[in-house]
């Protein structure tokens, strides 16, 4: 083999194992899902087989009011939950960026929710919110509110699952922000202090601009994750009461593993994927813009 041929093919040869794995576990399932989304295939009716039906699964979705309600609910959940997580996480990081008594004790406690698996989180809060035996219900009764069974009331069920998600993932934003805060250069602060800037001005013109990139990464990761929320809601409410907490991922689960409509479930998954791609593209665009500003 001459040097030119080797130079041309060697990189491909070296990359081949990784590319094959990516194709098998990443690209193939995606295309198979796309293929399924254009078929009728019900596991409980194997005698009917798999039938190509073009975009019927998609049209059936887009004409269903339940789909649009679930879609809107997922957006509301994501915006409110992620918004709160960002504010609280960043706020806590600012607080922990300075020394105070008991910091070493409080710090690991704050991180506990993040290291708990979503199923356990769902179970813990399901029992905490239980209308008869739950701690939260007991407190609400003592306080004298009208609603005790938080998860049984459509007006309070969605806020309750948002609260749980915030409890679960605020530490993630907190940790990411704290790590970045600790690594910020000291010189801009010294310059600002010499110029006589107030605490608020330092935060607004020094800290926040330097934190933007990491906050955007946290926002991107949390948005993608919150949009796909499943475990906690499935354990806590199964989408109920009625359809008060029915989000897109639960609808995918229901179509695929309850009704065994593999085609419709796949179509839903594709729609969800497209939405997540659009959101992440928007974030990345903003991120690139911010990076460009910083570099200037």
């Amino acid at each position: 083999m001459d040097a030119v041929t080797e130079e041309r093919y060697l990189p491909w040869g070296l990359l081949a194992p990784a590319l094959i794995i990516i194709l098998l576990i990443g690209v193939f399932p995606l295309f198979y899902n796309l293929f399924l989304s254009m078929h009728f295939w019900n596991l409980t009716r194997p005698e009917l087989g798999m039938r190509f039906i073009w975009f019927k699964n998609y049209t059936s979705l887009f004409t269903s009011s339940l789909f649009w309600e679930a879609f809107l609910r997922t957006f509301v959940f994501t915006i409110v939950a992620v918004g709160l997580e960002m504010c609280l996480g960043f706020g806590l990081a600012l607080l922990f960026n300075r020394d105070f008594k008991g910091k070493s004790i409080v710090f690991p406690i704050i991180l506990i929710p993040m290291i708990t698996t979503p199923i356990v989180v769902g179970l813990i809060w399901r029992y905490m919110f239980n209308g008869e035996f739950g701690f939260v219900s007991w407190i609400l009764q003592v306080v004298g509110t009208d609603v005790h069974a938080v998860l049984s009331n459509p007006a309070t069920a969605l806020p309750a699952v948002i609260f749980v998600d915030v409890w679960h993932w605020t530490p993630f934003v907190f940790l990411l922000s704290l790590a970045r805060l600790g690594a910020l250069p000291r010189s801009p602060y010294e310059a600002a202090e010499i110029d006589g800037a107030s605490t608020w001005q330092i935060f607004k013109w020094v800290t926040f601009p330097m934190m933007k990139s990491v906050l955007l990464v946290a926002l991107l990761l949390r948005t993608m994750d919150a949009f796909k929320i499943f475990d906690e809601i499935f354990i806590m409410t199964q989408g109920g009461p009625g359809d008060a907490t029915e989000v897109l991922s639960l609808e995918i689960y229901r179509q695929t593993f309850r009704y065994f409509n593999m085609g419709k479930g796949s179509a839903l998954a594709i729609v969800m994927l497209i939405v997540i791609i659009i959101i992440s593209r928007i974030y990345l665009k903003i991120f690139q813009k911010e990076e460009a500003v910083v570099q200037q």
Partner: peptide, 10 residues
């Protein structure tokens, strides 16, 4: 009317 427990939905 509260004749069944509030948690009955669950």
């Amino acid at each position: 009317e509260g004749l069944a427990p509030a948690g009955s939905t669950d």
